[in-house]
Computed example of a mutant assay.
Amino acid sequence: MLAIVGAVVAAIAYGAATVLQAVGVRRLAAAPAGSSLWQRGRAGWLYGVGLALDGGGFLASLAALQTLPLFLVESMLASSVGVTAVLAVLFLGVRLSGREVAALAVVGLGLVLLAASAREGPARTIATSGGWLLLAGSGLVAALFVAGLLDRGRDRSAVVLAVASGLGFGLTGIVARVLHPSNPWWHTVFQPQLWALVVAGAVAVVAYGFALDRGRATSVAAITFATETVIPAAIGLAFLGDGVRSGFPVVAGLGFVAALGGCMALAARAEIEN
């Protein structure tokens, strides 16, 4: 239950961060020309609060992944787009269409089904070679990001960058699932999977920003959601010992499809227009 609370907190933090950052950017853009750095900082301080919430959400997701399977946690994190949609209605005056309201309900139903079907437990311990494999994977994500960044075709570039972002976010989830502190704790810094998390996370954030700049928010968010949710879920089930409660495979499958489909239908709310 505590792990599920952590995943819920992470989703709320990520969703609220998107709204706060949008408000911060909007206020910053409205600052008079020639404003001092201090004045601009005061105008956009909510953006900093949003970044802090992103950090808190990340820590909460790390805690959740210690005992919950990837297919559940990643789906709950993707549902942060629903939190963004609700908060945008409450605080930014955004109006949701009937389709988006229905998508919110589908996401909620999907998450309930997933929570009911997930089997709690730690991931399998991976060998040192597995840590190096994860680090190599983060290098491949970085290479894909560079390829997308250098691509002069904006539409194709946006797709490649969105995939790189999704893979990066997904890899951070995988690492968080298998990362365990060493004894003594400071030896953790020598674990290759820790550096895989750092590299993949940094690349994911930067790639997502560039993808949004070059493509439509709806398409970019949908590609990122699908990549960061489906691939880690498959890897967790195949290699990390993630499992479903006996008699609940169909329930889990329906919940996963409903949650992911609803999130993709809400993808336009992943980035609030400023």
Rank of each mutant, 00 (worst) to 15 (best):
G261W: 05
T128W: 12
L161Q: 07
R95Y: 08
V198F: 07
V106W: 09
L237K: 13
S165G: 09
G57A: 09
F210Y: 04
F210H: 03
A29E: 10
R119N: 06
G82V: 09
V203E: 08
W132L: 03
F71G: 00
V86H: 02
A30T: 03
R245V: 05
S219V: 02
L51G: 07
V83I: 15
R26T: 05
G110R: 13
S35H: 06
G82R: 13
G153C: 13
T218F: 15
A202I: 15
P122I: 12
L161Y: 11
G173I: 11
P184F: 01
P181T: 05
T188C: 14
W132M: 06
G34N: 07
A64N: 02
R245S: 12
R99A: 13
S75Q: 12
G55I: 03
S79C: 14
V23I: 03
A29P: 15
A270C: 14
R40Q: 06
F58P: 10
S246F: 13
A238E: 10
L197F: 04
L2D: 14
D155I: 11
V9I: 08
A16W: 02
Q66A: 03
A136I: 01
T128Y: 11
F239V: 11
L140V: 08
G24T: 02
S246V: 08
T172R: 08
L87D: 06
A29I: 09
F145E: 11
S129H: 12
F145V: 04
N274T: 14
A16H: 03
S157A: 00
P232G: 06
E228W: 14
G34H: 06
S36A: 08
A162R: 05
A17I: 02
L20C: 03
V94M: 08
G139E: 03
A22C: 04
L161R: 01
T125S: 01
L144W: 09
T218V: 15
V205N: 11
G241Y: 07
A200G: 13
A11S: 06
E228C: 15
I126W: 07
G255K: 03
L167H: 04
F71H: 03
A221Q: 10
L96V: 00
